[in-house]
C-alpha cells in the first residue's frame, strides 16, 4: 500500500467535513421541538368507538399477542353488549392487525406517542381510556377518513434543508423549526 495520492484523499474528506460545519444541524430537540408524526402513525393506545363495536371479537382473534380482552353478553334483539374491552398496552406490539381486521371500523390506532406509565397496571386500558377524547385521537392507519384532520407529516426531505432554519455555527437552543413545526 503506497501513499500514491499524496494525501489528496485525506484533504478531500477534510474539506467535506468543513463544509458540513456550515450546514444546519438536523437534530430535533425532542421535548422542545416536536415533529408531526405520519398521518398513518401506529401510535400507542388504540382508539375504540363503542357505538360502532358489535362485539364480534375479530380483533381478539387477529391479535398475535392474544392481548385484547373482550367480554360480552346478549342484549335485546340478540345483539352483543360489550361489558369489558381491555388491552394491555405494555404487551401490545402496535402491529395494527386488529385495526385492519375490524369489519365495522370500530377500532383505530391512536396518534399519541407519549404514553409512558409509572405502573404496569396503568398500562392496562379499559373502555373509558380507549374511547375518543380530546387528547386521544385516531390516526389514519387503515382509516383514511381521519387523514384530513391530522397535520401534515414533517419530512426531513422537505423542511430541514432549505426552509426556516437559521444557519449559524451554534444555533440557539430554543429555535423555531420550519413550516411544519
Amino acid at each position: 500500500m503506497k501513499f500514491e495520492r499524496y494525501g489528496i484523499g485525506i484533504a478531500k474528506g477534510l474539506a467535506l467535513t468543513l463544509k458540513h460545519l456550515f450546514r444546519a444541524p438536523i437534530t430535533v430537540q425532542y421535548p422542545d421541538e416536536k415533529l408531526n408524526v405520519s398521518r398513518r402513525t401506529r401510535g400507542n393506545e388504540l382508539v375504540w368507538f363503542p357505538d360502532k363495536c358489535t362485539g364480534c371479537g375479530t380483533c381478539t382473534k387477529a391479535c398475535l399477542q392474544g392481548n385484547i380482552i373482550l367480554v360480552t353478553h346478549r342484549g335485546e334483539e340478540n345483539k352483543f353488549i360489550v361489558d369489558k374491552f381491555e388491552l394491555d398496552s405494555g404487551r401490545c406490539i402496535f402491529c395494527g392487525l386488529c385495526v385492519e381486521s375490524c369489519p365495522y371500523n370500530a377500532l383505530a390506532m391512536g396518534v399519541d406517542y407519549e404514553c409512558a406509565k409509572y405502573r404496569r397496571g396503568d398500562a392496562v386500558l379499559g373502555k373509558e381510556k380507549l374511547s375518543l377524547s380530546e387528547k386521544h385521537k385516531p390516526s389514519a392507519y387503515y382509516r383514511p377518513q381521519f387523514a384530513a384532520e391530522l397535520p401534515e407529516q414533517s419530512l426531513l426531505l422537505y423542511n430541514r434543508k432549505e426552509g426556516g432554519q437559521k444557519l449559524s455555527i451554534f444555533p440557539l437552543s430554543k429555535r423555531k423549526r420550519g413550516p411544519h413545526a
Binding site: 458540513h20 460545519l21 444546519a24 430537540q29 451554534f170
Partner: peptide, 20 residues
C-alpha cells in the same frame, strides 16, 4: 463536544447553561 457535533451536523450539549 460542541465542535465535533457541528462537524457531524448534530447540535451537541446545549442544555446546561448558555450553549451548554
Amino acid at each position: 463536544r460542541r465542535l465535533i457535533s457541528r462537524f457531524q451536523i448534530r447540535l451537541g450539549p446545549n442544555r446546561c447553561g448558555p450553549e451548554g
